[in-house]
């Protein structure tokens, strides 16, 4: 828990209409702690494997790596009793339909972990005609575990990351615990197997494209995003040495800078996308 969350006044600055005089007194944070601890210590994954990664998932469940040490020993074969869906392997278009259905059948709170390159972004099979390039095109993913396949220890690291994420959730913030909001949570629309997979959320876009096609206009080609080429001068050896010294002053500094740049690029990309109306 960060010290920021321990400031109760800030915590209560949410949708919870607490009377002003009570805001300093009610200790929802501690409750969050207990609530989160019990939730993260009894994460029951769903017993379902898709592909190669499932073998490593079973390896993680077996006695050598044994994720029951994290309270995950009860792998439930039914979605109704499970909290965590480990998408372990390549998601195909044919399989995404049952997966979304299973996800809808899981009770809240529910978490999704994309295990391996395939589930995260298509993996080596991304170009395939029957492969969904990333489960996050259909379901909200909480943790991505890269690797092809991730070793059991890498998966355990991902599970710990998920536990940390749960630890960071506050009971007082409805964004963190939407399942205590008013009304039932919205089910994810189930994809339809037509001539190719059809995402119901994209119906309008598909219809527009079909109309364009019927009118004989060009369709189905998205303009390529402009490639931003930075014509970078190759620095001299001396200049490079100076740069390298800075680089080696601290790994942290370098990573920070890289992260900042990535964030900036991401922000630009998002702005671009927003402008396009994607």
């Amino acid at each position: 828990m960060s010290s920021k969350e321990l400031d109760l006044r800030q915590v209560h600055d949410t949708e919870f209409p607490l009377p002003a005089e009570m805001q300093g007194n009610v200790a929802i944070t501690s409750l969050s702690k207990i609530y989160n601890w019990s939730r993260r210590s009894s994460m029951w994954p769903m017993l379902f494997g898709l592909a190669c990664c499932a073998i490593e998932m079973i390896g993680t469940a077996s006695s050598r790596f044994d994720f029951s040490r994290f309270g995950m020993e009860v792998m439930r074969a039914t979605p109704r009793q499970s909290d965590l869906m480990i998408v372990s392997g390549t998601v195909t278009k044919k399989m995404i339909v049952p997966i979304v259905r299973l996800y809808n059948q899981m009770p809240e709170p529910k978490y999704v972990m994309a295990m391996g390159a395939c589930a995260s972004g298509g993996g080596p099979f991304k170009e395939g005609y029957n492969v969904v390039s990333g489960i996050d095109k259909y379901l909200p993913v909480d943790v991505y575990v890269p690797g092809c396949p991730p070793t059991p220890q890498a998966l355990l690291y991902g599970l710990i990351a998920l536990q940390k994420k749960i630890d960071g959730q506050s009971l007082a913030n409805l964004d963190d615990v939407p399942w205590y909001g008013v009304g039932p949570s919205e089910p994810t629309p189930i994809p339809i197997l037509g001539p190719d997979i059809i995402d119901p959320r994209q119906m309008d876009l598909i219809r527009r494209q079909a109309e364009l096609a019927a009118a004989g206009k060009p369709y189905g080609v998205r303009e390529l995003p402009p490639v931003v080429k930075t014509t970078k001068a190759i620095p001299s050896k001396a200049a490079k040495a100076a740069v390298a010294e800075v680089v080696d002053e601290g790994e942290l500094k370098r990573r920070e800078e890289a992260a900042r740049r990535r964030q900036a690029v991401l922000a630009r990309k998002r702005a671009r996308d927003a402008a396009k109306g994607v």
Partner: peptide, 23 residues
Amino acid sequence: DYEMASYDRTSVNIHDKERLSKP
């Protein structure tokens, strides 16, 4: 280094030269 789990793949899973370089 296999401990690479993340919460958001779009921002971290394309490794650029900076991220890739190691002495």
